[in-house]
Nucleic acid binder design. Structure first.
Length: 432
RNA sequence: GGAGGCCUGUCCGAGCGGCCGAUGGAGCUGGUCUUGAAAACCAGUGAACAGAAAUGUUUCGUGGGUUCGAAUCCCACGGCCUCCGCCA
């Protein structure tokens, strides 16, 4: 039986489009994205449902007839089979139409981004709102070095050799530099574990449907490394694997959010950022990251978002870094985020705040595409909400090194990190 | 990389072209018995989707194909296991 109309391609929950298309239209507009797609989806959804219903009716008739054939005597069978042939071709035709309708719908639905949450600032990249600013910026009585100079002088970051073997935006972390990153990651993982996160070391190569489902193949697909020989994508964050982790699953109990801390190396092509942050390790093709990821009920998502932010702030404080929190504007949100808060640390030599973490509330956007549901009090399945937030990345080293540098060229290790570095309190320049 | 075996409901495990969503057992739920429990016995019990419900569709690793009809036949892919080769 070739029929497959019952489970067409990716299962996408379209209730939002049926219930409140105006909201989605408004959202697309706020993001500066195509609006007409929404009515197209509504229209195609209707067509799909009609064709699917036709298929199901025909199929029911065919099934009923099939039982007759099975029970019939030899002589009766000849006639019955002739009728069955007709039924069969009708079913096949209806199946093909249903499939086609679904394919068209899927293509368009994937271009529509998540609904922007109420309260998100309007505008683009520069229209963020600063929610708070914490910590004291360091005041130097000397000319502070940037992290590249520090990395070289302390012999802990080797940019030149990174470029030699892999090209620009690659680097070696060396000696205490390597250990410092691991220390920071360990500290983050310990904090996450204490907070109830389950540690996961994730695959960094994923299938197209997972990449698609998490929303990374939309506008920013040029950012992603792709391996054509294997039809696999290198992930730019473990969020991809973590979101896919429970795809096509029904979570039986989400009264408490399911929380995972994903540790992975991340790969980014940085295709759109030529000439930007070319120095050092601020913007690189490969880095490590510990990512928090939560599955929860939609009504708990905003509360969870605040929690993720609090955990991030806790890490920043352990690293003794001055920072600010910004509420990212609608036009600058990733396609899956309904709201996004970035935490930016002060980078002295740039005299500016730079993004160290980002936490997004994806509401039901990812779960709708990845078919991740939970069972509510009444036993009914509902779409889950997903959220993510950074707990530590290689980029943090930039802020740690620059903020904690001393006049003699050394860098003081934040107290909380020392136990993870075998008690090392300070990184001093190599002897000449 | 080469050769072979396997993949069925929560689990074990039958079925190998048609009244098969699937026999049986374990488990689970309810009941009888018991002071209580265990045991025994009786009954019920896969899942998703749509629907108020009746009911319908889908589902036997995944995807294709053959056929009026596929868990059952064919092809491809994946996973697990065994053996050989190779290698961190």
């Amino acid at each position: 039986m070739p029929s497959s109309a019952g489970r067409l391609g990716l299962v996408i929950d379209l209730n939002l489009f049926r219930e409140n298309p105006e909201q989605i239209i408004a959202s697309q507009r706020a993001r500066g994205k195509e609006v007409s797609l929404v009515s197209k989806v509504v229209e195609l959804d209707q067509i799909k449902r009609t064709t699917l219903a036709e298929f199901e009716t025909l199929r029911a008739a065919q099934n009923a007839h099939g039982k007759l054939v099975a029970q019939a005597s030899k002589e009766e069978k000849v006639n019955l089979v002739a009728q069955a042939q007709k039924l069969s071709s009708d079913v096949k035709e209806a199946d093909a139409r249903a499939k086609l309708a679904d394919e068209e719908l899927t293509k368009i639905v994937f271009q529509i981004e998540n609904i922007v949450m109420e309260g998100v600032p309007e505008g683009g990249a520069d229209n963020f709102v600063v929610l708070k600013e914490i910590g004291k910026k360091p005041e130097f009585s000397f000319e502070p070095k940037d992290h590249t100079q520090l990395g070289e002088a302390l012999d802990i970051i080797d940019i030149a050799r990174g470029a030699k073997i892999s090209g620009s935006r690659f680097y070696f972390l060396k000696g205490l530099g390597a250990r410092l990153e691991l220390a920071m990651m360990q500290m983050a993982l310990d904090q996450a574990s204490e907070a109830g996160f389950t540690a996961l070391i994730t695959p960094t190569l994923v299938k197209p449907e997972v990449m698609q489902g998490t929303g990374f193949l939309g506008e920013h697909s040029a950012e992603v490394y792709y391996l054509p020989a294997d039809d696999l994508y290198l992930t730019g964050t473990s969020e991809v694997a973590l979101a896919g982790y429970h795809s096509d699953e029904i979570l039986e109990d989400l009264d408490t959010p399911a929380r995972y801390a994903g540790w992975s190396t991340c790969y980014r092509r940085e295709a759109g950022s030529h000439g930007k942050d070319t120095k050092g390790i601020l913007r690189v093709h490969q880095f490590n990251k510990l990512e928090m990821f939560s599955y929860c009920k939609p009504e708990d998502a905003e509360k969870e978002h605040q929690k993720l932010m609090a955990w991030q702030e806790q890490m920043l404080e352990k690293c003794e870094l001055p920072y600010r929190v910004i509420d990212v504007a609608a036009g600058d949100l990733g396609s899956s985020a309904a709201r996004k808060y970035d935490i930016e640390a002060w980078v002295p030599t740039q005299e500016d705040f730079r993004e160290l973490t980002s936490t997004s509330n994806c509401t039901t956007f990812q779960a709708r595409r990845l078919n991740t549901r939970y069972r509510d009090e009444n036993g009914k399945t509902q779409i889950a909400a997903t959220l993510n937030g950074t707990l530590a990345t290689t980029r943090w080293l930039v802020a740690i090194l620059e903020n904690h540098q001393q006049q003699d060229g050394s860098v003081i290790i934040p107290k909380a990190l020392r136990p993870y570095l075998g008690g090392v309190e300070r990184i001093t320049p190599k002897a000449k």
